[in-house]
Design a binder for these strands. Structure first.
Lengths: 251, 251
DNA sequence: CCATCTTTGTGCACGCGTTCACAAAGACAT
DNA sequence: ATGTCTTTGTGAACGCGTGCACAAAGATGG
């Protein structure tokens, strides 16, 4: 039952579809840019273009928020910025901890995008005693031994895991036990967490592999005219003459 | 027409659904681990657990590959590793360039996950002349001026953008013009690219905001018993007593 | 006050993805 | 050879997300 849960809730939270929630930050970013340029109102068409989505989708998304635009005019930029910020919970302060201060963890700590919108790096944590006390991004790295105390003292509910894959599950368990209920996982592992804990993963390797798949497909299509149907009956699946014994075995 | 295209193809490529493609790397990782432990065969149930998915989903995914398991036994681990690797295009070498060698870019360059599976960092590129020649991850950083030449000479078709947001679109355009057809974007911007170019984005800030949304929702639900159904009719939507005029306007 | 024009909000239909549930297929023992 | 038992492969149903297309709403001008 408690095995390998890495899915998002999938149950639409309070009537707002998950897909919509995932787009709200995109809208917010576009709106913030407009706000900085002192643009008072924006139409769904314009905003959709800025966010890279369909205008109908955008309008439907906003309809879930109950955000009201003005027909014939558009949406009030400032109002929408506020509404979306509130809906996403960005009007409050979210202390986060980053665990695993290697190359990636340090880069995350230095990343400006954290502090900008309601998120505050409360602590950097690493298992290496040699790292303890060393300043990273103007903040001393603390040792894993103090993890629980740090979580509790700072009221941290969001944790970022940037450890090697091998340590991720263990760190995750400790974070959860200490009260963290949302985890952003950069380690290339499937984390298993109890119900009620959200995990989102950012996996560089997976993204690259997906790109490689499409890239290979593009390359395979070339020279056969269009690319609509399956032109490659040539090496169809390579099921092999010998049934299902693989001829070559890569490392 | 050429406005803000950031979606994935959505057209199922050669009959393999996009959702399945996105899971293949997950399966591959789990299978590789089994392979290293010299496990000869694995059932859909076991493998699904390791990959954190439903077993029916996994079987259906494999059915798209035409991968054959053996009923009553399971799947041959080595065979599957090979099949999935080939399907994802990992049996060939993919030279990639990383543009923008700041904190993040450097971390990516040092990331082992790149080299492991068919991906090879062909070059590191940065716009800062002061960076040129400096070694990062045992490789000299090259200047943006040479971008086109680097792409062409190395036959690079996959580019990673780790620049600040402001420079991303420009870098993207140059990459595409030079022949790159797949882009992994770490900059917090919507990239617009011509048809035929795939863009995948990794956006830390967005992930955090999505987590914050759910986190806020959890916090709002507390104190009303379990968390199964929607017990919080209490503060439904918080539309406020004063209609829809926002009381406070944040910066 | 009325007509026109712009833009929102949404009902509806369609397609993709997920899950269930089961028949078919093969291993294995007798 | 036959029966049993395990596990795959998939048909079918369902639900979510997307996009179209249009009616309703309001602004604006005369």
């Amino acid at each position: 039952m408690a095995t390998g849960r890495t899915h998002r809730p999938a149950t639409r939270s309070r009537g707002i579809p998950e897909a919509t929630v995932a787009r709200l930050p995109l809208y917010l970013r576009a709106l913030t840019a407009l706000s900085e340029r002192s643009v008072p109102t924006v139409s769904s068409e314009e905003l959709a273009a800025a966010a890279g989505v369909n205008s109908a989708k955008l309008r439907k998304d906003f309809s879930y928020l109950g955000s009201y635009g003005t027909r014939g005019v558009g949406y009030d930029v400032e109002y929408l910025v506020y509404q979306i910020s509130r809906e996403l919970g960005l009007t409050q302060d979210w202390p986060v901890v980053i665990v695993g201060i290697g190359n990636l963890g340090a880069a995350l700590a230095n990343y400006g995008g954290f502090a900008s919108r309601g998120f505050r790096v409360a602590a950097l944590i690493d298992a290496d005693p040699a790292m303890a006390g060393k300043p990273v991004a103007g903040m001393p790295v603390q040792h894993t031994d103090d993890l629980e105390k740090i979580i509790t003292d700072n009221g941290v509910s969001i944790g970022v895991i940037a450890t090697p894959a091998g340590a991720a599950q263990q760190v995750c368990d400790r974070l959860v036990a200490a009260g963290v209920t949302s985890i952003l996982n950069f380690a290339p592992t499937v984390l298993s967490v109890p119900d009620g804990v959200d995990v989102r993963k950012v996996d560089l390797s997976i993204e690259l592999q997906i790109l490689a798949f499409h890239e290979q497909r593009k390359a395979g299509e070339e020279g056969s005219g269009d690319g609509t149907a399956a032109p490659a009956a040539a090496q169809e699946h390579r099921k092999g003459p010998d049934g299902d014994v693989p001829a070559v075995m890569p490392a």
